[in-house]
Amino acid sequence: MLKITDLHASINGTEILKGLSLEIKAGEIHAIMGPNGAGKSTLASVLAGKEDYEVTSGAITFEDQDLLEMSIEERAREGVFLAFQYPVEIPGVSNVNFLKTAINEIREHKGLPALSAKDFLRLVKEKSALVDLDASLASRAVNEGFSGGEKKRNEIFQMAMLEPKLAVLDETDSGLDIDALRIVASGVNTLKSKENATLVITHYQRLLDHIIPDFVHVLYDGKIVKTGGKELALELEEKGYDWIKSVE
């Protein structure tokens, strides 16, 4: 589904990703772990198409298409979803209104008719229950006055509504208490299918107690330096990132 080959990316002239390669197939959950500054969030931003980052070399194909050629919105419509590390507050724009627009733009892209108001509301009800998001939050302005946990649950709610092929969770566990973590994780697990894939970017192992990855990659200094199964995460937690640095 996603194939990243020898990706180099920089911001303001500083190279962050230095030859990253990664392949994700449908049905798989991948976790990327790494110390601060390794390039984890840069990878997420580059996948979503954030214009602050410049890809200097390498390739990303998504469903056999050149992802780097696509605009931010095209990537989303093709099925790439980024759950933000720091969800944005947008006063005056209601959560449901924005989601309705998003869903219908995606449907139009796929040649599907717009969702009726009734079907849309049914979907909101169903999916907000999945992440235990209060229905009143769904109708409020995007993330305005939401707690940290509510913001993250709102990200997973949006993911549930948009049904992406590839979900990239950028440090979704940061700032979450145990209960919120469990709700977010169970949302992700419920949405898992043979057709879609998930890339979990995290600093800590604890999220991986709830979302069991098929592969764990260690990102260090802009490259993947180690790949293994879920036990790698435990090993990292135990030995710390210095262990990777010494392996290097």
């Binding site: 605009s71 931010i72 919105e73 989303a76 419509r77 998003a102 869903i103 948009l162």
Partner: peptide
């Protein structure tokens, strides 16, 4: 905010 909305599939 603009990036966020576009990353959800909404045109610029």
């Amino acid at each position: 905010a603009l990036f966020f909305l576009r990353a959800r599939g909404i045109s610029e």
